[in-house]
Amino acid sequence: MGIVNKKTQFILNLIMTILALACILPFVLLIMASLTDEVVLTTQGYSFFPSKFSLDAYQYLLSAAGRILRAYGMTIFVTAVGTTGNVFLTMFMAYLLSKKDLPFRTAISFFVFFTMLFNGGMVPSYLIWTEIFHVRDTVAGLIFPNLFLGAYNIILMRTYFTSNVPEEIIDAARIDSCSEIGILFKIALPLSRPMIATVALFSGLAYWNDWINGLYYLVRERDLYTIQNVLNTMVSNAEFLQSSAAISSFQSLNISIPTAGIRMAIAVIAVVPVLIIYPFFQKSFVKGIVVGGVKG
C-alpha cells in the first residue's frame, strides 16, 4: 500500500510539474522579453537568453512611478470594497436560491440566469449609471457598474450550497429553533469557506483586471485611475507614438519608446501582486471539513 501510494504520488507530482512548467515558462519568457532590447526583439524574436538586455521598458514605467503607485492604491481600495460587496450579495442571493422548497424558486433562478444571456450593450448601461446614478467621475463608477454582482457567481455558489451543505444539518438546526438567518451564518457559511474563497477570488480578479469602468466612467477624473487604466494608457500612448499617423506629423518625437517591451513589463507588474496575494486565498481551500463531526 505504502509503495503503491508513493508511486502514485510520484506520478501525480510529475503530471502536475509538467503542467506547472507549461504555465511558468511562458511567464519567464515574458519577463525576459521585457528585459530585451527592442531592436533585438523585432529582429531576433523572443528568447530565454536574449543577446542584448535593456531596461528601457522599466525606465519608461519608472517615469510614471508616482502615478503607478497611486493607481495601485486605488486598485487595492476598489478591489477590497467591490469584492466584499460582491461576496455578500452573491451569498445572500445564492443561499435564497439553494432552498429547494422556496416559493418562486424557479422564477427567481430564471431571473438571475437571464442576466447572463441578454444585455443591452454599453450605451444604455452608461446612460443609466451616469444620468440616474451619477457615478461618473467618482469612485462609485469603478465599483458599482457591472462588477458588483454577477449571475455566474450566484449560480456557482447556489450549486455549492445545495451539493455541499447537507439538508440534515439544516433540519437539525431548525429543530433546535435556529432562525433561517442564523442557519446561514452559523452553519452554511462556515461549511462553504472554499466556495466563498473562490467567489472572492473571481470577483477580486475581475476588479483587479478591470479597466472598462475606469475608461467609461472616469472621463474627467483621471486621478482616480486604477492600475489597469494607467497601464492601458501607457500602452496606448506608446503604440500611438509609434504609429505612422502620429509619426508623420509629430515633429517633437525624440525619445525611443519600446512598445513590445512595455507591454511585457506591464504584464509583469500587473501579475506579480496577484501571485503574492493568492496564497492567502488558498488557506481557505483546506480539506478536512467533516460533516459527521458537526452532526455529533
Binding site: 442576466t115 444585455n119 443609466i128 449571475a151
Partner: peptide, 15 residues
C-alpha cells in the same frame, strides 16, 4: 441583490 440586478442588468435591456 434583486435591486442591483434590476438596475445593472434589466434596465439597460431597454437597449
Amino acid at each position: 441583490s434583486f435591486i442591483y440586478l434590476i438596475i445593472n442588468n434589466y434596465m439597460p435591456m431597454v437597449g
